[in-house]
Design a protein around this nucleic acid. Structure first.
Lengths: 212, 212, 212, 212
DNA sequence: AATGAATGAGCCTTCATTCAT
DNA sequence: AATGAATGAAGGCTCATTCAT
C-alpha cells in the first residue's frame, strides 16, 4: 500500500532530527486504517493506533492535535488513493464508455477493495454523521465522482438518463461496499465489478433497443 | 409512529402500577431511534435515550439489563416494521412481478424511509460489526430478503440472472439508504424507488430482447 | 432452625391482615442468613434477601426501615440462638467444669456450626467494623461469654489463670469459626469441639501437676 | 512502614519521568492498607485509596488494571511482610522449640500486629470469600504456616499431637487477630503472644508429665 | 398489607488530552 | 523529537430507598 520503500524502517536507527513529521503522520494514517480493520470496530482508541504505528499516543496527539484530525487525515489518504486510481484509469481510457468503465474499475481495484480499506470506508461514512469536516470530505468525493460519471454518461445518453445512471452506479457501488464490509458470503471483487458494469450494459442495451 | 394513543401522556397524572414495563420498553425503543437520528451519532448514551424517553437511565437499565439489549430491541423493532411492510405488500400483490415490486416498495415505504429510521438502519449496520447478536439479526433479515427476491425472480428469469438481479437489487437498496443517510441533495423517496424498480425493468427488457 | 411449624406456609392462602409483621420480619431474618451463605458473599442486596424471603424489597424496607436494620435483626437472631443454646447447656450442667464444657459445646452445636450460620457470623463480625450498633451487639455477646466463662473458671483456677483461659477459649472458638468459614479441608464439628475442650484439659492437667 | 526514604516526597518538585510505576504501585499498596483501617470498612473505593496515595483514580487504574488487582497486590504485600518476618525469626532460632516460638513471634511482630495491618488481614480473609485469586493466596499462606509448624512440632511430639497443636496454634492466632480487629479492650501484643506461646507450653508440660 | 415503579448517588473503568522533561 | 506520567470527564451499571396505589 505504501509502495516498496517503507520510510519507517530506519526509524530507531538514528538520524531522527529532520523530516520525522511526515513519516510519523504517514505511519499513523496507515495504522489507523489497519487498526480499524483489525479491531473490526470503529471504536479504536488513539493509543491503539499509536501503538500500531510504533509511537506513543502523546506523539500522535502532538502531530495531529486531535483524534478527529487523525481520522480526517486517514480519510483524506484513502480518498486520495481512490482519486489517483480513478485518474490512472481515466488516462488509459479512450472514449466515454471506457472512461465510465474505468471509474467503476477504480472502485473495485485491488487496493481499494481490500478488506482493510473497505472497513475504513464504512468507518468514514459513519464518521461523517458526526464530523462536519468528514462530511465535507465525503461530499467532495461524491460530487467529483458524480460529475466524472455525468460528464461521460452525457456523451452516451440523454441528460435525464445520464443522471439516473450516475445515481444508480454510485448507489450500486456504495451498496456493494457496505455489503462487503458486513457480510460473509458475498461475491468477490471481480464478480462485483462485473455486476456494476452490467448495470451500464443494461442501459446501453435499452438505448440501442429504443434506437439511438 | 406510536399510533394515536400514546399511553405515556397521562404519565405524571397517576402513574399506574401495572403494565408499565411494555410501555417503558416501547418508549425506549422509539427514543433510541429518535436519539440516533437527532444526535446524528451512533454514540448515544443510555442517559440521552432515557431522557428522551422520559425516564431515568436507571429505569431503562432495569427494563433492559444492558445497553446492548436496548439497541437490539430497537433493531428488532425496525426489522419487524420492515417485515410487516413487506408482508402487507406481498399480500396485495399478484404474480411474481408485482411481488418483486412490492418488496422494493416496502423498502421505500414512508415509514421505512423516514430520516430517523434510515439513520437507525445505518447505526445497526455498524453495530453489527461489534455485536454478535446484532450481526445475527441483520443476517436473518438479509437472508429473508434474498430468498424472497430469489423465489419470485426465478419465476421470471433463469437462475443465474435471478441471483444477479437479487444481488443487484439488494445492493441498490442498501446504497440508496446509505446515501440518503449521509447526503443532503438526494433524490426523494419516490424517485429513488422508481430507480430501483427501473433496474428490474432493465432486466425485463433485456430478457424480452433476447426472446424469452 | 425455625422449629417444626413454619408460619410462612399459609402465606398466600388468605388471612393476611393480622400479625403479618412478625412473620415477615422472621422470614427476612432467615433469608438474610441463608442468602449470605448461598451467595458466599457479604455483599448481598436487599432485593436478593427479600426475594428469598418471598416478598418485595419494598416490603422488606417497610418492615425494617434500613438495610442495616435487617442485618442487625439477623444478627440479634443468631446471637439469641446462641444465647439459648448456652442457657440450655448450662441448665443441664452440674458444677463449674460441666458448665464450661457446656459453653464450649454450645458454640459447636449443630445449629450453630452449620455452614450457613458460620458464614453469617463472619458477616456480622465484619459488619461490626462499620456499624456502631453491630459492634455494640457483638460486644454484649463477647462480654457475656467472657463473664460466663470467667465465673466458672474462677471456681477451678486462680483469677489470673481464669482470665487467661477465658481469653484463650474465646480466641480458639473465634479462630475455628473463621477457619471454618474460609477453608475447605478443616476438622469437622466434633473434632473441633474436642480440640477446644482439650485446651481446658491442658490447663487442668497443669493445675493438677502443680498441686491444686 | 515505608522506611525512611519516601520517594514520593519530592513529588510536586519535578516529577521524574522514569520509574514512577513502582513508586506509585507501592504508594497504592500502602494506601490500601491504611484506607481499610482508617475507613474501618472493606468497602473502600478506588478513589478513596487513590486519593490517600496522592494520585487520581484513573492513574491507579492505569497501574493496576482492576480494583481487584489493587487488593491482591496489597494482600501479597502483607503476606510477604509476614513471610519475611517468619524467615528472619527462623534463621535466628535454634532447634524446633525456638523455631515454633519464632513462628508465633512473627505473627505478633510489631509490624504485623499494627492496627492497620490487622484490619487488612481481616479484609483479605473476607475478600477470599469472593475472589478466587485471593483465596488462593490465603491458602498458600495457610499451607505454608501449617507445614512450618508441623515440621517442627513433629520433632517434639507424636504425629497426632503435632497436628492438633498446629491446628490449635493457627486457630489461636487467627482468633486473636479477629478479636484484636474488633474489640477495644483486648490484651496487648506481648500478652497475646505470651498466651499463644503458653499453649505450646501446656502441651510440653503434658508431654513431660506422661514421660517422654 | 403489599408491590411495581422509579430514581439519585455512587462505583469502576476508559480515554482523549495535557504536561514536564 | 519523543514519551511516561497524569487527570477530568464521562459512561455503563448497581442498589438502597421512596412513592403512589
Amino acid at each position: 500500500m505504501m509502495g516498496n520503500v517503507n520510510p519507517l524502517v530506519w526509524k530507531s536507527a538514528q538520524m531522527p532530527k529532520i523530516g520525522m513529521q511526515p513519516l510519523r503522520r504517514q505511519a499513523m494514517i496507515l495504522a489507523t486504517i489497519s487498526e480499524i480493520a483489525a479491531a473490526g470496530t470503529l471504536d479504536v482508541t488513539v493509543s491503539q493506533i499509536a501503538k500500531r504505528a510504533g509511537m506513543s499516543a502523546a506523539l500522535a496527539m502532538h502531530y495531529f492535535g486531535t483524534k478527529d484530525k487523525i481520522f480526517l487525515a486517514a480519510m483524506r489518504y484513502v480518498l486520495e488513493l481512490y482519486k489517483r486510481s480513478v485518474k490512472t484509469k481515466l488516462e488509459a481510457a479512450n472514449g466515454p464508455y471506457e472512461r465510465i468503465v474505468g471509474i467503476i474499475d477504480a472502485s473495485f481495484d485491488a487496493s481499494q477493495f481490500e478488506r482493510e480499506v473497505v472497513a475504513a470506508w464504512l468507518a468514514f461514512y459513519v464518521r461523517a454523521l458526526q464530523s462536519r469536516e468528514a462530511k465535507r470530505l465525503l461530499d467532495v468525493y461524491a460530487r467529483r465522482l458524480n460529475s466524472n460519471l455525468l460528464f461521460n454518461l452525457r456523451q452516451l445518453f440523454d441528460d435525464t438518463s445520464a443522471e439516473q445512471i450516475a445515481q444508480g452506479l454510485a448507489s450500486l457501488i456504495d451498496g456493494f461496499y457496505i455489503r462487503h464490509a458486513l457480510q460473509d458470503s458475498v461475491p468477490d471483487r471481480n464478480e462485483t465489478r462485473a455486476m456494476v458494469q452490467d448495470y451500464l450494459e443494461l442501459w446501453l442495451e435499452r438505448k440501442n433497443r429504443l434506437g439511438r
